[in-house]
Structures are given as structure tokens and as C-alpha cells.
Design a protein around this nucleic acid. Structure first.
Lengths: 186, 186
DNA sequence: CACGTTAGTTATCGACTGATAACCTGTCAA
DNA sequence: TTGACAGGTTATCAGTCGATAACTAACGTG
């Protein structure tokens, strides 16, 4: 078994992907740099070497999640530049909720100013991108993000998505309101 | 300085209040049982003695937040049993976002099944209470909670509430859509 | 006033975790 | 060949944190 040697850039990209997976499950404080390292198949000190601190690794993961969501929306807008089109794209993201849950953990950790500032910038950019792509009014965009946040929370709660728990009366009731909106729900 | 001696019940109630304050700032993994203990003016081992584990303390705090929010809604419904009435009540809660942020951290920590189950039960109960109190349809209740989740996330992000950061163009734009809905925003 | 019960503390431990330092090794150009 | 740089590891530490054990002190009651 020869250890595959990658460039620092490639390794960083791989580690950021691993960080998104790990942090989206247990959040900032609940995730170990060693867990991220093992996911990528490298040693824990090397993770620190490449990102300096756990915090910078976390911020890189938040940034990556924001970038991927923005890219998804831009791609969707090329076919259907309406809120409905972006909503469908968001529904597809929720089938693999890593990215959106990562963002939620960014919100949750925003109490620390060093994390809050980049997280707000990331969310603000997403808001502006949606308005720019769809031409929606502020109120329309607000309702769009409102539903998005609800779905994101439901995903984190395991009411929704691949790791969803058996439905309860209330959750079936609530999810039923999204009929015709979910395309690729597992 | 004579240490005030309380009954276990009173001390538990006091500790739960302290736990809500502490956990709502740093989340489950990011908060120390010692921080909760200091907030209540007791020793850390005594917190563990009263709640057995950190996890049970956290769950008690989540439960308490859910109960308080439910009580607030029931009280509001006596005056105005409409979604608008409950929405105003929620707006008042956001002025002191401890309770709602506590709940958000419950969602974030729901990846652990031992936490997820009670958290889902808590949220499900709130959903049913809203529908029962207002007679709203599932879709109306969904939109109500959607906006609530957005506001909760914005509070956690310090876009909203007492610890809010200076507004950005996008946040002013977004918050502007709530004009006429915010009564007691600080 | 003795005495059991309840409230609370101090001391301490074992496990964990982020970070540092020192070292190793494959690759490539001269 | 050699040597230097970039990728990566092992060893290790200092601090932290949840939890346990043993002890102390106040209260109420017969």
C-alpha cells in the first residue's frame, strides 16, 4: 500500500470535503480535527498544518458549502430563473443535506464573532445571489429563505433526508404541504 | 456571606435557566457544565449530581425552552387566536432570543439520536399546539414556522436581536420585509 | 439535643483534543 | 549522484472536561 502523494492544494480540497461531512454531523465544537483527518486518510497534525487552526478549517468548510449552493443556484437559474426553479434545486440539495446542514452549523456557531462575521457574509451573498438571479422582491426572497431554513432545520432534525427517522403524524402533516415540490427526495 | 440553601427542585429550576442561557450561546458541545454551574453559583460536580449527565441537563434545557414558548403562545392565543397573534408573541420572544436559540441548538445537536428524539417530540408538540390554537391549515402553519425558523437563524447569526451586529445592505433589505410585524425589537 | 436526611463542597481522575516539534521520504532538477 | 524542497508522519504536551468519591454542613423532627 503506497501512500498516494497529493499536492497541498489537492489535499486541502479533499480535507475541506471531509470537513463538510464531519462538521455537518456534529457541528463545530462537537467535531474533532482527528475525525476530519481520518475521513481524508491523513494524520491529524497534518490537518492543522494545512489549515493552521480548527477554526480556519471550519470556516473553509462553511465557505465551500456556500460556494457549492451558490453554484447550484446559478446552474438552476440558467434553465429556470424563477424562485420555483431555485427551490427545486434546493430540494435536490436536501437529498444529500451535507451542504445545507453545514451552513446551519455555521449559523449555530456564529456566536463566536470570528465565525459569525464570515458566516453572515456567506449568507448575505446567497441572499443577494437569489435576488439577482430571480429578480424577486425582498418579500418574495424572504419567504423563499424562510421555507429553506425550515427545510434545513427539518433535515438537521432527521425529519427529512436520507437519515430521516420514521414519520410522526405531525411530520407527515407538515411534509405533506410540500407535495409537488419534492423531486428527488429519498 | 452565607450560602443560600435551596431545595433540590428550586436549584434544578435555577440550573435549567442557567443552562438555557449558556447552551443558547455556545451549543451542546461548546458549553461546559462548569459554565452552567458558575452561572448558577454552585459547583460543577453538583450540577452533574442533580442531572446525572450533561446530556440530561441539555435535554431539560430544551424541554424548558419548548414549554416556555408553548406557554407564550397559549397566552397570546387568549387575546388573539390567529397566526398573526402568535407571530407577534414570537417577535417578543426574539427580543430575548435565549429560548428560541436554545431550540435551534437542539436542532443542531439532533444528529445524536439520544438528543434527536426528544427534540423532534418538542418541535412536533409546538407544531400541533399552533394548529390547535389557531385552526390554521397545514400550509399556513408551515409558512408560519418557516418564517419563525428564518428569524431564529437570523437571531443566532446576530443579524437580529439584542446582540445584533451593525446592519449590512442585504440584512437591512431582508429585515425591512418585517416592517409592521416587529413590536418590541431592541 | 441527638440524629438522620438533604444540600452542597473539595479533591481528583481518566480520557480527550488542538497544537507544536522533530523527523522521515519521495520527487525532480542540475 | 546529490541535494533541496514539498508532502506527510510519529511523538508528545498542556489544557480541558465530564464524572466519581469522599467529605462537610445545615435543617427539621422526635
Amino acid at each position: 500500500m503506497t501512500r498516494t502523494r497529493l499536492t497541498a492544494e489537492e489535499r486541502q480540497a479533499q480535507l475541506i470535503a471531509a470537513a463538510v461531512t464531519a462538521f455537518s454531523q456534529s457541528g463545530y465544537a462537537g467535531t474533532t480535527t482527528d475525525q476530519v483527518a481520518r475521513l481524508a486518510g491523513v494524520s491529524q497534525p497534518y490537518v492543522i498544518r494545512l489549515f493552521r487552526t480548527k477554526q480556519e478549517l471550519f470556516l473553509a468548510a462553511v465557505q465551500h458549502a456556500g460556494d457549492r449552493i451558490e453554484a447550484k443556484w446559478r446552474e438552476a437559474a440558467e434553465r429556470d430563473p424563477s424562485l420555483g426553479g431555485l427551490g427545486d434545486a434546493y430540494g435536490e440539495l436536501l437529498a444529500q443535506p451535507e451542504l445545507v446542514t453545514m451552513l446551519l452549523h455555521g449559523f449555530a456557531a456564529a456566536g463566536d464573532p470570528a465565525i459569525g462575521d464570515p458566516v453572515r457574509a456567506c449568507f448575505g451573498r446567497l441572499y443577494e445571489v437569489v435576488r439577482e438571479l430571480t429578480g424577486a422582491t425582498a418579500t418574495e426572497a424572504r419567504d423563499f429563505f424562510a421555507v429553506g431554513m425550515l427545510l434545513t432545520c427539518l433535515g438537521a432534525m432527521r425529519v427529512l433526508g436520507p437519515d430521516a427517522v420514521p414519520p410522526q403524524p405531525w411530520s407527515a402533516d407538515l411534509l405533506g404541504t410540500f407535495e409537488g415540490l419534492d423531486k428527488k427526495m429519498s
